[in-house]
């Protein structure tokens, strides 16, 4: 028994090896708060692949799905602040705390290490739909109140807000003008539109591009600061004059637990600078249809802006009492 204890202690010794050493002193776990294979997972894996070249220790992905991403977020937020557990944050990390009164992790319970990428969203209808533009679609909604349905991950999810902001911009009630039908995951959302079970949707570009390329879906508008390279003729929400919808976009960022030591933050500043120019990162981002934003925005400010934006929306739409 004694030997067992010392053996076990020795194993423990290896795992919790002195934290005083230079960062990173052991492999870094990047928590992806969604399931494997999805857009966030691919972003996380692209980051670990690219950043792995500039770190002394390997970086691996751990998928921790649940509660719209808050399970993984909570795990990182409460982890030891040694920089060996980091989070691939998505827009949900700022959005979900904004739309509930008792969030399991608030928007600022992290150390913000940097932004990673912006992921455009697309408003699309099926190929046999009568609507040729966002304006026509909105007219159709106005003429048949509540009749048209759209698929989204949930009322207070990012792909629900894409539609609700648009309805609100057009002067309609964001909650009742069109009927929300909840589905889980990009694949299920896309197939709901393909199968003709809903009339339109506005979700992340990555899930829709294959169907747009094959001609089964028609893109009406993109939620992105500028037009997408792959869809040069599709206007952006901002161009069309939709004020709120023009501000909705998906993004990824790198977060750590609160109060990360200075040394860790500095290391990541350097590493992310190198990742921003690396071939792996850029080509992987292009494959997924997202735009690298490393170094373009100050993440702390951006996260706060995003939180305030969705907080105001939630109050305006009546999600918060």
């Amino acid at each position: 028994m004694k030997r067992a204890l010392s053996l076990a202690a020795a194993t423990l010794l290896v795992t919790c090896a002195a934290q005083a050493q230079d960062y990173p002193s052991e492999s870094i776990t990047l928590v992806v708060p969604y399931g494997p294979g999805g857009a966030s997972d691919l972003a996380g894996r692209a980051l670990t692949e690219a950043a792995g070249n500039f770190l002394d220790e390997p970086m691996t992905v751990a998928n921790t799905p649940g509660s719209g991403g808050m399970t993984g977020a909570r795990k990182v937020s409460t982890a030891d602040p040694d920089g060996h557990t980091l989070l691939l944050a998505r827009v949900g990390m700022a959005l979900l705390p904004a739309v509930t009164n008792d969030p399991s992790v608030d928007w600022d319970e992290y150390t913000f290490l940097g932004s990673l990428e912006a992921t455009p969203m697309i408003l699309a209808v099926a190929e046999d739909s009568p609507y040729e533009s966002a304006e026509e679609l909105l007219e159709g909604i106005e003429n048949n109140p509540g009749e048209l349905s759209y698929a989204a991950s949930g009322a207070t999810a990012i792909d629900g807000f894409t539609v609700q902001t648009l309805l609100s911009d057009a002067g309609m009630d964001p909650l009742s003008a069109a009927t929300l039908v909840p589905y889980k995951g990009g694949g299920a959302l896309a197939s709901a539109l393909l199968g003709g079970h809903v009339d339109f949707l506005a979700i992340s570009a990555a899930s829709l591009m294959p169907h747009i390329e094959s001609g089964d879906m028609r893109p009406l508008m993109v939620y992105s600061p500028e037009r997408m390279e792959a869809l040069p003729e599709v206007p952006t929400a901002e161009e069309q004059g939709y004020e709120l919808a023009g501000q909705v976009i998906g993004w990824s960022a790198l977060y750590g637990p609160p109060d990360l030591p200075e040394a860790v933050v500095d290391t990541w500043d350097e590493v992310l600078d190198q990742v921003a120019d690396s071939e792996t990162w850029l080509s992987r981002a292009e494959d997924r249809g997202s735009i690298s934003t490393i170094g373009d925005v100050d993440m702390t400010t951006y996260a706060e802006e995003q939180y305030n934006f969705y907080r105001e929306l939630a109050e305006k739409f009546g999600y918060l009492q």
């Binding site: 399931g35 494997p36 294979g37 999805g38 997972d41 691919l42 894996r45 995951g185 694949g187 299920a188 896309a190 197939s191 393909l194 294959p210 169907h211 992987r284 494959d287 997924r288």
Partner: peptide, 17 residues
Amino acid sequence: GIPGDVITGVMLGAFMI
């Protein structure tokens, strides 16, 4: 291009990579 479960979701990721 629609993954039916987690496993085919992972395969979709492998295709896209």
